[in-house]
Design a protein around this nucleic acid. Structure first.
Length: 954
RNA sequence: GCCCGGAUGGCGGAAUUGGUAUACGCGCACGACUUAAAAUCGUGUCUCGCAAGGGAUGUGGGUUCGACUCCCACUCCGGGCACCA
């Protein structure tokens, strides 16, 4: 047999497949197969740098899925196209003066050639390009539908403005206050912008996630971005006015601790609220100052600032009149713009501390001593107790007890008797346990702490309500305590002065409250966020983490509040002041206002321009072409001008998967029959970077089209997964500037497309980032060479039972692994099989052909070639995916491991059905085992088919 | 700060439901073939120990007959969000 020459076979098969249309999806009227399968990858942005080895990873991954589906009898649609509008091409055009159309053509040609050389089974007859007027005609058409329904509107907006790119940015394109693309700090500018009312769909975008199969982290990303928050609205009467203010609170569990209100400095109600207040001017001035700073610094503005309005509102829960403050952290666009604030919120707490606003606590921390947790079968005794931290002002040391009977180090601690004053109780305990007579009470360490632990000395579980307090030693005077008395009090503990550092290092420190006390001791107080409630009394003792729903229902039932759901999601800023995008098809008429371009006049084509530079006024370069801008109004035929803004990059990609079903349609964006047949997309794989925005935007467009009865499903994608990036060698991102970009062309030339494909699927888990290695790629190449050489020595003799067994186990594993995108382990099992076949004296033609089939999704060229060599006429892609024989994958004989006290000491082979009694007997009689168990009391644990564990006393 | 994800040989990474840790690949070492080299094939390759044995899955504890896997605390790395009440 000839040598394995990838160059010859790969080109040949790629051409043959394309000529025969093997991968062309059949539209419903032509398809004989009933079941369709739509697999989708994110269509690439054809950058000038060409493809690097990272790009094809998702294409190959979904190609493996698609190829398997074809063999499983599905009519598969696996398309590709170009998301070609966008900044890099435009910036290149600005720099070089070249027409973006020509640049795009050149780039897509390069990308196409590169992708085709990998043998990905794309249906090239359905290639689309978002910059093709025949395509963007429909992007514009969909925009007009938004306009018709009132979901596209113009609004004066403070937009994020990148002074370098001279472009307005959506919030999502601003990263840490800087432009996502160029890193220039973003400024705020007021401008008329086109908006899409995505917020109208917020609820459905959140709720319908329940109906799709996305990876959990992807759903989470969507949910975080939508930011659904279910909270309560409280209404409060403002004293000395006839105003009622409403607050929105999502964390209302501790609402009985609320002691003030916070209103946004730019809140529309603020001026009215201040009417008749003496300090009105000062408050307004301060508010303005905050608003200005916020505008200037954007997301970086984090100052805690504010001012008292002079007004009070009546707490609806009956906790008196609470002051209303203007606060920098209150946002007018979130909720009602007014919040009810308490000690149990970080920002509220910090604000209150800064302005000395009184606080009230209704949550006490709950601690479970992990080193000494409550035991399930012991009774629980509740105690009120003190913990006294006695310090010596001279040495700064703390007085500690070292217990005699247990390895414990504790503060002075003891129970409060009856109605005893807690300070007196503490002094009493100090005297009894240490003998010190003269200590001075300094202060309480915050509120109580609920502590749960097992009290060894009493053999019972304790729920102790501890009150921490600090004392200072006044002098060394001690009361002599007779030894008998010490013993009677169970107290022969030794007393030791320790520094805080020594304390912390002490492994026997038994105070789980320690860290809270330490915080409070040094006055670095933090708000208490978790624990158990004191108020309202109906919920006393309940834990914050589990009380939310009940307390909300209770507050609503009592008439104190009403429920309200709000979202973080904001409407989508949809215009860009750039050239290389879809023109927004609207005409501005002095008489008629904003008039949509009539549908028959679509597409509004991008005119050619000489200069791609945006204008300094921030308008798009299109504004300079008066011939294009000046048109007649479609309604009144009067003088009018075109909208010069274009759409963002996200527009064309929001519906492209629909166009694939019917790429040449001139009457609609896609024929309904085709949509009904092909949608929804069955499996969509893409990058992590697009799991929030692109996915959300296209789901929004899809739902909108669904409401217009233009698409048949409520969701566009049934299943969504994501892949990890391929990094450069050493784990850094591949980039031109670092010079570590690997071009797949080189690899295909040297090793072949199949090797590249197998390597990319083998190098690591598909969803995780992996570093490229020039060295490791040789492994997959050797593997394919072995496959080739076995192909030359198959015979018509039957394979041995054991090799058939391995084959069938591999069929099962590969079939399952592909479904879960565990491509790396699928290939690993194929490698094991190949090694076995290589060693075998005989490989049957029948078995080898099955092997070729399960390898073919990964390495389509070599398997197709060998398939033909073995006498098959039809493409291996059209053969039927093999199923495994359930009888063959079940082992009849297994290895049973023998452990003694959990350590492996021996093993033996046995029938899979071996009973416990037989297994134990066999195990005991093994010579390696005897010395471990002789003459000892034994106990056996038997796990069928796996383990006999012999437990003996050591 | 909050929310996710992760940490296993020299390297990329395996390990069903808690049941032989290190599959598969790379690299490395030795051997065969060769005048020689490359390629290929074979053997070995966590670690300490002559051995019997012991120790290892980021660290420290816990649960269990048995823990990479479950629980608690922590360290480091990656990603997302970040005044969102």
């Amino acid at each position: 047999m000839k040598k394995y020459d990838h160059k010859k076979i790969e080109k040949y098969w790629q051409n043959t497949w394309e000529e025969n249309g093997v991968y062309h999806a059949k539209n419903p009227k032509n398809s004989v197969k009933k079941e369709k399968y739509y697999s989708l990858i994110e269509f690439p942005y054809p950058s000038g740098d060409g493809l690097h080895v990272g790009h094809p990873r998702p294409y190959i991954g979904m190609d493996v899925i698609s190829r398997k589906r074809r063999m499983q009898g599905y009519n598969v649609l696996y398309p590709i196209g170009w998301d070609a509008f966008g900044l890099p091409t435009e910036n290149y055009a600005i720099k070089t003066g070249k027409d973006p159309r020509i640049v795009t053509k050149k780039n897509t040609d390069t990308f196409r050639q590169q992708i085709q050389s990998l043998g990905v089974s794309f249906d090239w007859s359905r290639e689309i390009n978002t910059t093709d007027p025949k395509y963007y005609k429909w992007t514009q058409w969909i925009f007009l539908q938004f306009l018709k329904k009132g979901l596209a509107y113009k609004a004066k907006m403070n937009i994020n403005w990148c002074p370098k790119d001279k472009i307005g940015l959506a919030n999502e394109e601003v990263i840490n206050g800087a432009c996502e693309r160029c890193g220039t700090p973003v400024e705020k500018r007021e401008k008329e912008q086109w908006m899409l009312a995505i917020t109208k769909y917020a609820e459905r975008l959140d709720k319908d996630l329940d109906t799709v199969d996305y990876l959990p982290k992807i759903k989470l990303g969507q949910r975080n971005w939508i930011g659904k928050s279910e909270g309560l609205i409280f209404s409060a009467r403002v004293k000395d006015t006839d105003m009622i203010i409403e607050t929105f609170n999502a964390h209302f569990e501790a609402c009985y601790a609320d002691t003030f209100f916070a209103i946004a400095p730019d809140h529309p109600l603020l001026p009215k609220l201040l009417e008749g207040v003496r300090e009105k001017e000062a408050v307004l001035k301060k508010s303005e100052e905050i608003v200005k700073k916020r505008l200037k610094f954007g997301d970086d503005y984090k100052d805690i600032d504010g001012i008292f309005t002079g007004r009070y509102a009546v707490d609806p829960l009956g906790n008196g009149d609470l002051p209303i403050w203007v606060a920098s952290f209150a946002l007018k666009d979130y909720g009602t713009g007014i919040v009810k604030c308490s000690a149990h919120d970080e920002r509220d707490f910090a604000f209150a501390k800064k302005f000395n606003i009184p606080l009230k606590e209704v949550i006490i921390p709950k601690l479970i001593d992990q080193s000494n947790p409550p035991r399930p079968n012991k009774k629980t005794v509740e105690r009120t107790a003190i913990q006294a931290i006695v310090t010596d002002p001279k040495t700064k040391k703390v007085l500690m007890l070292k217990w005699k009977k247990f390895p414990w180090t504790t503060f002075i601690t003891g129970g409060v008797q009856g109605n005893e004053d807690k300070v007196i109780a503490a002094k009493r305990e100090i005297l009894e346990e240490t003998g010190y007579k003269n200590v001075k009470f300094i202060k309480h360490l915050g509120g109580p702490i609920e502590s749960h632990f097992f009290a060894n000395h009493k053999d019972e579980n304790r729920k102790a309500i501890f009150y921490g307090m600090i004392f200072e030693l006044e002098n060394e005077e001690k009361k002599e305590i007779p030894d008998e008395e010490k013993e009677a009090h169970e107290q022969g503990n030794t007393v030791e002065w320790m520094t805080w550092e020594e304390l912390e290092k002490d492994k026997n420190l038994k105070c789980s409250e320690y860290f809270i006390y330490k915080e409070r001791f040094f006055d670095k107080t933090k708000p208490v966020l978790n624990g158990v409630l004191l108020e309202p009394l109906e919920f006393k003792g309940r834990e914050i983490s589990e009380v939310r729903k009940d307390i909300a229902d209770w507050l609503v039932k009592k008439g104190f509040a009403k429920k309200k759901t709000i979202f973080k999601l904001r409407d989508w800023v949809f215009s860009r002041q750039r050239y290389w995008g879809e023109p927004i098809p609207v005409i501005d008429c002095g008489k008629c206002g904003l008039v949509p371009v009539p549908e028959k006049d679509l597409p509004v084509e991008l005119p050619k321009v000489k200069n791609y530079q945006p204008t300094d006024s921030g308008e798009s370069p299109l504004a300079n072409i008066s011939k294009w801008v000046n048109v007649k109004c479609p309604k009144c035929k009067g003088i009018a001008s075109r909208e010069t803004d274009t759409m963002p990059n996200w527009a064309g990609s929001s519906w492209y998967y629909l166009r694939y079903t019917d790429v040449n349609n001139k009457k609609s964006f896609a024929d309904k029959k085709n949509l009904k047949y092909w949608t929804p997309v069955d499996w969509y794989n893409g990058g992590n970077e697009h799991t929030t925005l692109h996915l959300l935007y296209s789901r929004f467009w899809h739902k909108f089209l669904y409401d217009l009865k233009l698409v048949p499903t409520i969701e566009p994608y049934m299943k969504r997964t994501s892949h990890g990036m391929i990094l450069g060698e050493g784990g850094v991102k591949m980039s031109k500037s670092l010079g570590n970009v690997i071009n797949p062309n080189e690899i295909v030339k040297t090793y072949g497309a199949d090797t590249l494909r197998v390597y990319e699927m083998f190098m690591g888990p598909f969803d995780q980032a992996v570093a490229w290695s020039d060295e490791a790629i040789i492994g997959p190449r050797r593997f394919l060479e072995k496959v080739w050489s076995i192909g030359g020595k198959v015979s018509d003799k039957k394979s041995s039972t054991s090799s058939s067994q391995l084959l069938h186990k591999t069929i099962k594993k590969v079939s399952e692994d592909i479904e879960a995108m565990r491509f790396n382990t699928a290939i690993s099992s194929l490698m094991i099989l190949v090694t076995e076949m290589q060693k075998a004296n005989n490989v049957s033609r029948k078995d080898f052909k099955i092997f070729l089939q399960i390898l073919s999704p990964f390495a389509p060229h070599i398997t197709e070639e060998l398939w033909k060599v073995l006498g098959e006429k039809k493409s291996i892609n059209l053969s039927v995916w093999p199923s495994f024989d359930a009888k063959l994958i079940k082992d009849e004989e297994v290895t049973i491991v023998v452990q003694v006290n959990g350590k492996v000491r021996a093993q033996f082979r046995a029938e899979a059905q071996i009973t416990e009694a037989e297994a134990v007997k066999t195990a005991e009689q093994l010579p390696e085992i005897a010395k471990w168990i002789e003459g000892k009391e034994k106990r056996f644990i038997f796990i069928p088919r796996k383990i006999v564990n012999i437990v003996v006393q050591p």
